[in-house]
Design a protein around this nucleic acid. Structure first.
Lengths: 116, 116
DNA sequence: CCGCCATATCGACAACTGTCAATGTAGCGG
DNA sequence: CCGCTACATTGACAGTTGTCGATATGGCGG
């Protein structure tokens, strides 16, 4: 598979710049994309927004299910996605699970865009 | 639609905070998610990176196909996604198509995360 | 005018994602 | 001990997404 039918190095005189460095490493791109993918859902953005607003003690799932108009399993799923992306922290207290923002995580994600 | 299912003020005594405002509007969340979804692919991140580096005249597709190890139709597709998201600008010059960053677009996307 | 080159578009297909209903698990109250 | 409440997990299913090969379009050179 290849894509580069042109292995010829010299004869290459196609269009514009001769191209330079790899710019953004493939592995680094994948790492950043994974976090951004977690942020690319309306429901999850709203979850983060609510959790951020409720910071100080965290928010439990029952506070998150209603305003989103989504079923409880769905909210639980989204929270897991955000958890796996390193954006949220979970703390189980008794019967309830409290979610809170991981400090600096949103800023890091934001910089992964501006720092392209 | 509704967003405010809680007209009942008193009977509610479930767990933690009584919840407050809608935090992030559903429509606004969807708008932000659409842009972030365009940014949530490794290939597209690398495309933006290369285009950003080559700024000054823009980059043409032939310069973008090789370093990404993706087929030409695939690259064209990704460019269209970024175009539709308002992140890239296209200018056809002769046979070639030159892509460049829309000024401020990346910063706006970044602030849609920090400004939750 | 004919054919090549750079891009875009189309059609297909596998993989992934969001959603829900049903079920499982673990504290708490009677 | 029994059932309830809060949450997680599973399984299924429709819709979306990334990728490619094939084909269309459009400018340039002979």
């Amino acid at each position: 598979m290849n894509t580069a039918p042109l292995s010829a190095p010299a004869t290459d005189s196609h269009c514009c710049v001769p191209s330079g460095r790899p710019a953004l490493d493939a592995a680094e791109a994948q790492r950043r994309a994974r976090v951004l993918k977690a942020l690319s859902d309306p429901g999850r953005l709203r979850l983060l927004s609510i959790v951020k607003a409720a910071d100080g003690g965290g928010a439990c799932v029952c506070d998150l299910t209603e305003p989103l108009e989504l079923g409880q399993p769905t909210v639980s799923h989204h929270l897991k996605v955000l958890l796996d992306a390193g954006l949220l922290h979970r703390e189980k207290r008794g019967t309830w699970a409290y979610y809170s923002l991981v400090p600096g995580a949103l800023e890091a994600a934001s910089e992964s865009i501006t720092g392209l």
